[in-house]
Amino acid sequence: MNVFRFLGDLSHLVAIVILLLKIWKTRSCSGISGRSQILFAIVFTTRYLDLFSNFISVYNTSMKIVYITCSYATVYLIYGKFKATYDFNHDTFRIEFLLVPSAILAFLVNHDFSPLEILWTFSIYLESVAILPQLFLVSKTGEAETITSHYLFALGSYRLLYLLNWLWRYFSQGFYDLIALLSGILQTVLYCDFFYLYISKVLKGKKLSLPA
């Protein structure tokens, strides 16, 4: 475990908790893409199926449980408790266009043709594009609440920190995983324009608004 990976996990946890608190406290999921949250729940489910069969550490197991619990709780709040505030008019990105290619690619390009490994690979590919419905929603509404932009910044930073973690692991122990690395690069690239807007606007106290 190196500092980049730890900060990455922390950033990911902060993002997940920020979102859950935002919805719970404001009792509203306006500006949040329920479809992206469904994709994240699928990512965690397919990636952590070895939760009980493959013990790595208390940290690893507890974080997996937190991620899975929070992601399902978020989906429940959006589609259950606060569905009256769900922006179904704008949250229209076709997630089958993300699920099907990720599944096909997982069968074609993986490290090991075993069920668990193919599901892990599927979760890596899906995670790299899972934020697209959310970014699509922000572009359609033309703006994002400040708390939502903090959520996106933390979420985008997590995989950027993981890229630094893989750089560190490559030079310190010769470890690399091309599937995770290339997917992580794509995932982070998708946030680039958001990062620019966040740093140039939100950090100056302005609201995040995309050029109409």
Partner: peptide
Amino acid sequence: SSESPNHDEL
């Protein structure tokens, strides 16, 4: 690779 890789990252 023969052994299924052990993913120790989240």
